Simulated assay, not measured.
Amino acid sequence: MKITVVGSGGWGTALALLLVENGHDVTLWSHTPAKAVALEETRENPMLKGVPLPPEMKFTADLGAVKGCGAVVMATPSYAVRETAHKLRGIIDPGTVVISVSKGIEKDSSLRLSQVIEEELEGKCPVVVLSGPSHAEEVGRHIPTGVVAAADNLKDAELVQDLFMNPRFRVYTSDDRIGTEICAALKNVIALCAGCTDGMGCGDNTKALLMTRGLAEMARLGVALGGRKETFTGLAGVGDLIVTCTSMHSRNRRYGILIGQGKSVQDALEEIGAVVEGYYAAANARSLAQKVGVEMPISQAAYEVLYNGRDVHAVVSDLMSRAKRSELDESPALLFLQEK
């Protein structure tokens, strides 16, 4: 199949590599002509150092490459999804399967990214979400990985499963696009917080507490929006949460570490030197939670640190001093088992 990957960051490049290995005709689109030329000449992406890009892979800065494609992978940063999808509106063929692999919630509108794409493409293309515990650095090095393809129509998810799946990249299908996208966006916020506790010198106990309670509030929001509880106990939920909160591949965790060590929000962003999706997601998740009336204390705490300048130690103290409550009221895993 002819496929264009829109976005030549580490993740877009790793997915383009997978598709080339699976025998597809793949073009990787870059936002600037200079980057496209550099990728073609060097056959290496600086964000995937040491991973050679095969001669079969093509490079361009012309969005016209999506014309005639059977599938288009949207791999831009979350803040660029609407602008890019808008540019595709008059180019992409109706019926082309669009695969959203960016993770986040749009600022102001509080829309999930698949909704943004659908809105800009005027509903002419089915949108499938691909998400899960999948560091680009490891996918690029052929390390076994498992993800979820989620679509309202399972046949669309199964098509994406067929495109990407091979002996080192396992793809499961789901019809819960809402839950999958909420997992993808909010796990970055929790990972940022996990990094803060690392930077503060807290231990494994703290991280386990944070991840477990973070998962509970992710599930609360996802279910309130129409997602299913079981999605949060799967690869898109707990799987992606584990890998993002514990790995130094995670920019969100590394960013949090710097803040926990006392760096300012802006200085830490500059030191990371790349997009930190959790920074944007903290504000957008807070806005979305307020709209639907869901309590999310960890995400709120992240917002207070990132946007209101609160001290991380004071925020941790506040979280630990919250009113008593029962864990069973909101554990996604236990609620899932009760439904069964």
Rank of each mutant, 00 (worst) to 15 (best):
G104P: 02
R286F: 01
G260Y: 03
G10I: 02
N205S: 15
E277W: 10
E83P: 00
E21H: 08
V129L: 07
S102M: 09
P133M: 01
R220I: 09
S317C: 08
E21P: 00
R228E: 15
G95Q: 10
L63T: 04
S30K: 03
L221K: 03
G95K: 09
E118F: 00
T197K: 05
I259P: 02
S247V: 11
A283S: 15
P167W: 07
E137Q: 13
A268H: 13
P54D: 13
V305S: 09
L334V: 09
A301N: 04
D329Q: 11
K2S: 14
H24E: 01
Y255F: 12
I182M: 04
E119A: 09
L319C: 08
E40C: 01
H313E: 13
L235T: 00
P167A: 06
A283V: 05
P332T: 01
T246N: 13
G201A: 11
V292R: 03
R228Y: 13
R168E: 09
A208T: 07
K124A: 14
G12W: 06
A71G: 12
A61C: 09
E44L: 04
L186M: 15
S102T: 13
S287A: 14
E83N: 13
E138M: 11
D152R: 15
H135L: 06
L18F: 01
T206Q: 02
M218F: 01
V26E: 11
D108Q: 07
V72Y: 03
T244C: 09
L241R: 14
H24S: 10
P46V: 14
R253Y: 14
V148H: 04
T60F: 04
A151P: 13
H249E: 13
A85C: 11
G146K: 00
T42N: 14
N153T: 10
T60H: 06
A323C: 10
I92F: 09
G203C: 13
G203H: 12
V316A: 12
K67V: 13
V66D: 01
S134R: 06
L335G: 15
K35N: 04
S331N: 15
F232I: 01
V148L: 06
I257Q: 14
L113T: 05
K324W: 14
V127M: 02
E271I: 14
M248T: 12
A208M: 10
L258V: 03
A289D: 11
E339K: 15
E217P: 00
R43N: 03
H249S: 05
D162A: 15
D176S: 03
L186Q: 08
K155R: 14
L186G: 04
A283F: 07
R228T: 10
A38H: 03
V20R: 04
A302R: 01
V171D: 05
V116D: 04
R322S: 12
P332G: 04
L221P: 00
C193R: 07
L235M: 12
V276D: 00
D62P: 09
L186V: 12
H86D: 14
K229L: 14
A85L: 10
V116N: 06
I143S: 03
N22P: 08
M57S: 07
L113E: 03
D162V: 11
H135M: 05
L192E: 06
K2V: 08
R220C: 11
I272P: 06
V276R: 05
K324D: 12
V223E: 03
Y280H: 15
E122C: 01
P55D: 13
F336A: 14
